[in-house]
Design a protein around this nucleic acid. Structure first.
Lengths: 234, 234
DNA sequence: CATGTTCTAGAATATTATTCTAGTCAAGCC
DNA sequence: GGCTTGACTAGAATAATATTCTAGAACATG
């Protein structure tokens, strides 16, 4: 674990370049930011920058991986609650939105790059991160599924159901289109998410009628709704 | 409405450039695609391209606006259902995912540019579109809110609750990370969304106990969850 | 201290967005 | 028909900027 001065210097330079890059990317736009700007902001020479990263795109990817890693840790920590899942889900959503609100630049950057076009290599690294994150979630939820507290669904969908609304909100909020109180949003989204994945009641026959018994019907009836939806023109 | 040959030629050229640009953007990446490639793919000269659009960025924005406009129409059409909101919401989600699956390139492009960094002007045009889209939704939902069928919420949140999960799913699906059957996803998401915004039962006291009565409690209790959430470290 | 490796600076190069110049073409007017 | 005007186009010229190259400094190690 001994870091000699070489390595210390190196990793500091790397970090300086990354930090400067994030600032430049957010200030001028990822595409518009120039190596010259990053060079100036970081104090490194262009040669040094290229030595460490190889291309501007590679800097962007490294930055993305850094951020995703950090966010994944935040979320993983929020998944500790083992008793009350409802509370746990609220914690996760709260943690996410809190992180977003405290790291606006960083969060916005992640949302921007998330769908950017990347090389095979880069994409597969990112896939890996996403896969792990999905697994974190699935592992956490499994006991609750087994106990019948929440619906059994493909792992892929849990992420969409749990993070979808929060992400959507964050995206618009960060761009300044929305102005709601974050605390309120947390509670509202947490409540909504909980309703959307929790199972009706225990083995209590005679469940409520209107809003909760539709599961199997909803899932099977109206065959091929994709073809019959009204807006399906084109 | 008479189009002289001049205008016909002009608008065809414009469209050719836009179409070619979308192809190039998706093939090489928005950033990586060059004017030269667009020139070749569209058959227009670089001079012509700049005459019509002024910059590569401007092409990207025009393309985005085009796509958003089309998608907005698809969604608006799906919001016709006036009787059964549950069905209506399913239609909307189905229409969205159907459109996405039938216009993958286009859909992916919209997701990519949605958060891209833009100039003041461009951003405000896009804000406008988003605002209108939010209004479409709010207007459609209002009667149902009045009748007490769904929760009363700030307009801003309806979009996140209704589109959030579908968008999240689409994002990952389009990048090829997920492989679920779209029909199944539509039903699942529609069901989840419905549960998350529909109101318990009518004025029927003695509602189910566990999963539906927590609204007010969920919203008020556990003050300031943002500060107390476990994952809130850093 | 000799030697190889990693890192850095800054100039040289290559790529690409953008601008400029000189036209072409259609449409209206005499 | 000729003439004029304005929109459009082609392709060369320019400028901005990513990337590569070369020489050397800083450091670790034997």
């Amino acid at each position: 674990m001994e870091l000699n001065t070489q390595r210390k210097r190196t990793s500091k330079r790397r970090r300086d370049i990354l930090d400067a890059s994030l600032r430049c990317f957010m200030k001028h736009g990822i595409e518009a930011a120039t190596i010259e700007q990053i060079r100036e902001a970081s104090g490194a020479s262009s040669g040094s920058i290229y030595h460490h990263f190889g291309s501007k795109q590679a800097i962007a990817v490294a930055l993305y991986l850094d951020g995703m890693e950090e966010l994944a840790i935040v979320l993983r920590n929020a998944m500790q609650e083992q008793d009350d899942l409802r509370q746990g889900i609220r914690n996760v959503i709260a943690a996410y939105l809190l992180w977003v609100s405290e790291n606006r630049d960083w969060a916005l950057y992640l949302l921007r790059v998330a769908t950017a076009d990347l090389s095979r290599d880069e994409a597969s690294t990112i896939d890996e991160i996403n896969r792990r994150s999905r697994e974190d979630l699935a592992r956490w939820l499994r006991p609750f599924v087994d106990r019948g507290e929440i619906e059994q669904l493909p792992d892929e969908l849990y992420a969409s159901l749990i993070y979808g609304a929060a992400t959507h909100f964050a995206r618009h909020w960060l761009v300044g289109r929305l102005t709601l109180d974050v605390d309120f949003v947390v509670e509202t989204l947490a409540h909504a998410v909980w309703c959307s994945i929790s199972k009706p009641a225990p083995p209590d026959r005679s469940a409520t009628n209107k809003s909760r018994n539709g599961k199997s019907k909803g899932l099977k009836s109206a065959a091929n709704p994709l073809r019959s939806g009204k807006g399906a023109s084109k």
